[in-house]
């Protein structure tokens, strides 16, 4: 463990290959393979809607409250609901303890996630109210914003907020000169670029797009297209997770009769 810490301090370990001669990545995945993703809907008692997503080593909890009365009142809009998003990382979610509370990164991520979810919601149905979305990152291993969007979108559906579509998200990136799907932490640290994307799959609308890194035009577009494919796979899992919840309820009801 100690050796690993020193490596982390010194930047990329010498000779580290993120893709081996067989085309396998550090965690054994192929170039276009997602990490294991598990989703569960309706996991919290108090929230109007909630979801828990495990995505590789990411563990993310999302909750939705609302539409409800907005405080402070001056923020209310006469023509539509206000969407508020708070993305927050637990202090123990990362290798080095993170100081509690919002830092600049969390503030920016909260803002872009709000922009990613907003187009899916029929906010004009609930004037003068607020819909609060809380995303808590309990453990982080790269790709927390796309996992957070995925969880938040499920929580919104679970809360019964009217939506045009689910928002599904996934990232692609560049490691060792190749465009690959869904970077993990080591790949994000030592790779060349990370491209998180969120979509509403029914109409192929892109609702989140960022790029942090250094890519040619063609590489960027390749990464965007790959991330969209990944998000479509995530979308199928979201639908299954929602179905699972209602099947369970149906079984319970049937069992009671």
């Amino acid at each position: 463990m100690k050796v690993k810490r020193v490596e982390a301090m010194m930047g990329r370990p010498e000779g580290l290959k993120l893709i081996d001669e067989n085309g396998k990545r550090l965690d054994g995945r192929k170039k276009y393979e997602l990490r294991r993703i598990d989703m569960e809907v309706g996991v919290l008692k108090n929230a109007d809607g909630s979801a828990y997503v495990e995505w590789g080593k990411n563990k993310i909890l999302a909750a939705v409250y609302g539409p409800r009365e907005i405080h402070p009142k001056h923020l209310q809009r006469p023509d539509m609901a206000v969407l508020r998003v708070r993305y927050n990382m637990a202090p123990f979610s990362v290798e080095e303890r993170k100081k509690p509370g919002p830092d600049r990164r969390s503030v920016e991520i909260s803002k872009v996630i709000r922009g990613a979810l907003e187009p899916a919601l029929l906010l004009e149905m609930f004037p003068r109210t607020v819909i609060d979305v809380f995303i808590e990152v309990l453990q982080a291993d790269a790709g927390t914003r796309v996992a957070g969007i995925t969880a938040a979108s499920l929580a919104l559906a679970d809360a019964g907020v009217p939506m045009r579509d689910l928002v599904a998200a996934c990232a692609a990136g560049k490691i060792d000169g190749e465009i690959v799907l869904d970077l993990n932490k080591d790949e994000d640290n030592y790779g060349e670029a990370d491209v998180p994307v969120a979509i509403m799959p029914l109409k192929n609308d892109i609702t989140l797009l960022q790029m942090d890194g250094y890519l040619t035009r063609d590489e960027l577009l390749e990464a965007v297209k790959l991330a969209i494919k990944g998000a479509k796979a995530v979308y199928q899992k979201q639908r299954e997770a929602l179905k699972e919840k209602y099947l369970q309820i149906a079984q319970e009801v049937a069992g009671n009769e």
Partner: peptide
């Protein structure tokens, strides 16, 4: 050098892939 070093979609709304491609090429 023709490299992209940052991309950011901001605010609400959405883009089609073709619109993203247009933005990338026009930005260059």
């Amino acid at each position: 050098t023709g490299h992209v070093s940052a991309v950011q979609k901001g605010e609400g709304g959405s883009f089609k892939l073709e619109e993203v491609m247009y933005a990338v090429d026009t930005a260059m």
